[in-house]
């Protein structure tokens, strides 16, 4: 073989493009080719591909749906969140001026977002409106109501360890006659939401492992089917990375396809339930629209499913492609 010619060719190529760009572009071209040909191969057997992708999709749809439910419950609770508040009924001897001083003092607490002062006159007006005792109230000679401070809390203050000391501190103030806690239900709601979210997270971990196994097993079968090709590739000098590449792309495609199907499934679920939720909301005289996966969450779902696919096939190739180094 005239090797001098080869050397001359290489030298000429280097002169034209420099030593590095051709290698990088060749490497990219290899990846493009690998990605394209594995996709073609998967599409050539659509039923088998769809089966694997569907299993991946169902495994991913479950935690995704639970996540969507949790997000919706959170959005529902968000409407009530401002009423996570404590009402302080001040001693009858405390007038509006003294109340305002106390208001400023309490507002300095880091757990407090705002404090609202309800004057005795405002309290009476409100009482007359909502109690239905309008004329009876008008008969009163003096206003019997105390000044009220409505203390709005940060959501983070609903933690037991923050809330309890705060409440006892407010309670023990000499100006405070008694305290009504509206925060309890919010606390329970928060706890339930947290339970739902950790449930979704646990399910996601469990089913993510399932996806790894499903993709890993599919890739293992593919490796078995391509034993001879892998052996020949290794004989002609393919590196382990080269032999492994098409399988990693297969895994990535399974993951991406499964993730897209999962997105479709969850969207279909939302679409199916939307009408019923709207009806239920109208019975409560509110308008509440079910929200699906947001513009940040869809890419996150697709990226993590693709990553799971790559990881699953990585494990399979690491275990079963051992032949790559020495057939």
């Amino acid at each position: 073989m005239p090797r001098r010619r080869t050397v001359a060719n290489t030298a000429r190529r280097r002169q034209l493009k420099g030593p590095h760009p051709p290698r990088l572009s060749a490497w990219l071209a290899q990846h493009r080719k690998s990605a394209g040909s594995t996709l073609q191969q998967l599409l050539r057997q659509p039923v088998a591909t769809l089966m694997t992708a569907a299993v991946v999709a169902i495994a991913l749809a479950l935690p995704t749906a639970l996540f969507v439910v949790a997000e919706n419950v959170k959005a529902l609770g968000g409407d009530w969140q401002p009423s996570a508040a404590v009402s302080l009924f001040l001693e009858t001897g405390i007038d509006e001026t003294a109340g305002a001083a106390l208001k400023r003092q309490i507002a300095d607490d880091p757990a407090v977002t705002s404090v609202e002062l309800i004057s005795r006159a405002e309290g009476l007006t409100e009482f007359r409106e909502y109690s239905g005792l309008g004329s009876a109230v008008d008969q009163l000679i003096a206003n019997p109501l105390p000044v009220v401070l409505e203390v709005h809390l940060r959501p983070s203050a609903l933690e037991e360890t923050v809330l309890e000391p705060l409440l006892s501190r407010l309670q023990s103030m000499p100006e405070v006659q008694f305290l009504r806690e509206d925060a309890e239900w919010a606390q329970r709601f928060e706890a339930m939401l947290e339970l739902l979210q950790s449930g979704a997270a646990l399910l996601a971990i469990l089913l993510g492992l399932g996806v790894l196994l499903v993709v890993g097993n599919t890739i293992r079968l593919e490796i078995e089917n391509h034993r001879e090709a892998i052996r020949i590739l290794c004989l002609v000098g393919a590196t382990a990375a080269f032999a492994r590449r098409p399988f990693l792309y297969s895994g990535a495609w399974y993951g991406l396809l499964g993730g897209s199907l999962a997105w479709l499934l969850v969207s279909a679920m939302i679409w199916l339930l939307e009408g019923q939720v709207a009806h239920l909301a109208s019975l409560y005289h509110t308008s509440f629209a079910l929200r699906g996966l947001g513009p940040a969450e869809v890419p996150l779902l697709l990226a993590s499913s693709t990553l799971l696919g790559v990881l699953g096939s990585w494990i399979a190739t690491a275990r079963h492609l051992g032949i790559a180094d020495a057939p």
Binding site: C234, L235, V236, G237, A238, T239, A240, F242, D325, A326
Partner: peptide, 14 residues
Amino acid sequence: PRRRIPFHRRRIGM
């Protein structure tokens, strides 16, 4: 080393 084996084989036609 094992990782050099492919490059060794590229210089041999089998």
